[in-house]
Structure formats: C-alpha cells, structure tokens
C-alpha cells in the first residue's frame, strides 16, 4: 500500500497542471453557491442554515462528478500510459485507490471551498455548527459514492464521452430511485408492493443524503455510502485486470 502515495500525488497535482482544476473549481462554486442563493433562498429564508446549499448537491453532482471522474481511466487507456502504469511495480488495487483518493480529495476541496458561506452565517447569526459539519461530511461521502461509479465506468472504456454518459446514466438512476415520482411509478403503474418499492428506494443517494443535511449522521447512511464506494472500487479493479 506504500505505492498509493505517489499515484495520489501525481493524479491530484495533475488536475492543477492543466486548466481542468481551475475551470472545474470555478464552475462548481458558481453553480453550487448560485443555486443556494437564487433557487434555495439562502438569504431570503432568514435562517442561519446551509440546508439550501446542500439541498442541490445530489442534482449538481449528477453532472459535475462524472465530469471530474470520466478521465480517470479512459485517458490512461486512450493515451497508452496505462501500459506504463501497469508495468511499474504497483498492484491494480493500489492504482485504483490512489487515483480514486486523488479525485475524491479534489472534489472535497471543491465542496469545502464554500466555507465563506458558513463564515457569513456565523457573522450574521448563530448557526448550528453540528448541522453544517454533518452536511459537509454527508456531501463529501456522497461525492465519493458518485465518484466510485464514475471511476468504474471510466475503467470500462477508453472513450471519455462514453464514460461520461454512462456515469451520468447510472448516477441518475441512483438518484431517481428515491424520488416520489419513482415511488408512484413502482406502486401505481407497476403495482408492486410498497415493501419492495421502499427496498429499492433504499439504494438512492437522496434517501441517504437527506439525514446528513438535517444534522443526523446515521450509521446506516454512512455504511451505504462507504459500501457503495467499496463495491464500485472492487469492480473497478476487476474491470482493469487483463
């Protein structure tokens, strides 16, 4: 596992060697903070909470996480560097974890850069820091879940467009499972039992993210995101074995 660190460093700083990092961070901040202000009523609500910021994350991540994750393996495959990487003395697991952690750290940075909002709240009112911190924890964990899916999709193809489209599709599915629209479709149109519908809805990002934004860190939700990430990374390793 000692080889994770050089892989991590190369990948993480790789974002900053090209304009990718700056374009991504700026767009991410504009859209996440913009949504909180203009669609979520961050100021208008008059309450010292960041709920309106976190509320949009599952939808925003649908596009932005695949954008950050689509290149993880596709680019290595397309440019042939995958041959270089896998003839260096590292295991596939180390490479997968190193690259995943780098992209995850990058996404966490994008999320955490909204900290001036929290500072504003602290200046204008007295927010509940526990709720804010649990919101950040939940959002970063959820980003890990999305990223796991994207990394896996990226390992399946050397075409970044295919990787992006597949990632968005799978993530949309994982979000929609938890919406009331999907619920009505399952119970009403397909007339499936409510129990089954609830079971399927349990695999949704929405269901598990919601509690975090309210300040509740439920082990159930933690385990969901961690095991989803673990499963996708395991499949990622399998997909890369030749």
């Amino acid at each position: 596992m000692r080889q994770i660190s050089p892989i991590f460093k190369r990948e993480f700083f790789g974002y900053f060697r090209s304009p990718v990092a700056y374009v991504f961070l700026i767009i991410f901040l504009f859209s996440s903070v913009g949504l909180a202000f203009f669609a979520g009523g961050f100021f208008k609500g008059g309450i010292a909470t960041m709920e309106s910021y976190f509320y949009f994350h599952p939808w925003l991540f649908l596009f932005l996480v695949p954008a950050a994750g689509m290149r993880l393996w596709s680019e290595e495959k397309r440019s042939g560097t995958v041959e270089l990487l896998f003839t260096l003395p590292i295991t596939i697991l180390e490479a997968v974890i190193g690259k995943f952690l780098a992209a995850w750290a990058f996404l966490a940075l994008a999320i955490l850069l909204s900290f001036p909002m929290a500072l504003t709240l602290a200046y204008l009112g007295s927010p509940d820091w526990g709720v804010i911190i649990s919101g950040y924890v939940g959002s970063i964990l959820m980003a890990g879940g999305y990223l796991g899916v994207c990394s896996l999709m990226s390992a399946l193809t050397k075409n970044q467009v295919i990787s992006f489209v597949l990632s968005v599709f799978v993530c949309v599915m994982l979000v929609l499972l938890g919406t009331s629209m999907f619920n009505t479709f399952m119970t009403g149109f397909l007339s499936l039992p409510v129990g089954l519908t609830d079971l399927v809805a349990n695999f949704s990002f929405l269901t598990h993210f919601d509690a975090f934004t309210k300040g509740i860190i439920d082990p159930k939700d933690l385990i969901f995101f961690v095991s989803l990430t673990g499963l996708t990374l395991f499949l990622n390793v399998v997909a890369l074995e030749r």
Partner: peptide
C-alpha cells in the same frame, strides 16, 4: 507513452518515487 502535462523532471521524479 508518458503523461503529457508533466515536465520531464516531474515525470521522472514520479517514476523514481514509484520505483
């Protein structure tokens, strides 16, 4: 093949670390 965005030194430094 090599990582195009890295400089020669950065790239070889990465290889040295992995080695």
């Amino acid at each position: 093949p090599a990582y195009p965005e890295m400089t020669v030194e950065e790239f070889l430094d990465f290889i040295a670390e992995v080695r």
